[in-house]
């Protein structure tokens, strides 16, 4: 049973499937490109800005100044230790660089997060738009089937220009129209034929067109 229902052909409706594959690839590409561009320019741009020649010079001179401020409150003996001074300046510089890198990463992540939220909103809206192209026809078909079930054979399906499954509309409408005409014909026979024998013959030949589950 399972083997019988296994799909052997993945492209059942090739144009439709290819179109939706393109939609998904486009969405994925937008998300990836946005993320990559944000990461690249956020981090690299931040680094280029923060570590420009001028800024590096400023950072070094500020580190030296802050070390000097610290030294100004220490004892003269401690102040005169050149190695200690270099150590403190290096520590200040490395700490500052770590802080700058951390700031760049946090700012980039925040930037990406904002973009992702915006993209999610866009993708969500886009998915409603895309699914509407399928959901709309399905709803129309469902209503048509309901009408037919209830005997309303004058029903017809009309889809919008860019709806999916537009090619099914003529087939479905033709089916309903055939039924509509057949039933109409039988009703007319019943209304206009006075000879019972002729009426039975006509109805039989009309009903002979249909195959049902009750037929042996």
């Amino acid at each position: 049973m399972q083997a019988k229902n296994r799909r052997r052909h993945f492209f059942i409706k090739k144009p439709l499937q290819l179109r939706y594959m393109a939609y998904f690839l486009l969405i994925l590409t937008i998300v990836l490109v946005t993320t990559l561009v944000s990461v690249y320019y956020g981090i690299w741009g931040g680094i280029l800005k923060e570590f420009s020649n001028d800024n590096v010079q400023n950072i070094i001179s500020t580190a030296v100044r802050i070390q000097e401020y610290d030294a100004a409150r220490t004892s003269p003996e401690e102040r005169n230790l050149q190695s200690l001074r270099l150590f403190k300046e290096t520590e200040l510089l490395s700490n500052q660089q770590r802080d700058i890198c951390s700031r760049i990463l946090i700012s980039t992540n925040r930037d990406i997060l904002i973009k992702i939220v915006f993209l999610m909103f866009l993708i969500g809206w886009g998915s409603i738009f895309l699914s509407h192209k399928i959901a709309g026809p399905l709803y129309r078909f469902e209503r048509c089937f309901d009408d037919v079930t209830q005997g309303k054979l004058n029903t017809r399906v009309h889809l919008r220009r860019f709806d999916e499954a537009r090619e099914l509309v003529p087939i479905l409408n033709q089916m309903v129209e055939t039924l509509d005409k057949s039933v109409h014909h039988m009703k007319k026979l019943l209304r206009e034929t006075s000879d019972p024998e002729k009426l039975r013959h006509e109805l039989r030949s009309e009903l002979a067109k249909y195959e049902t589950t009750g037929d042996k």
Binding site: D54, N55, Q57, N58, I59, S61, T62, R65
Partner: peptide, 8 residues
């Protein structure tokens, strides 16, 4: 703190 560029 200072008029030097980059000063906190």
């Amino acid at each position: 703190d200072s008029s030097k560029p980059g000063s906190p």
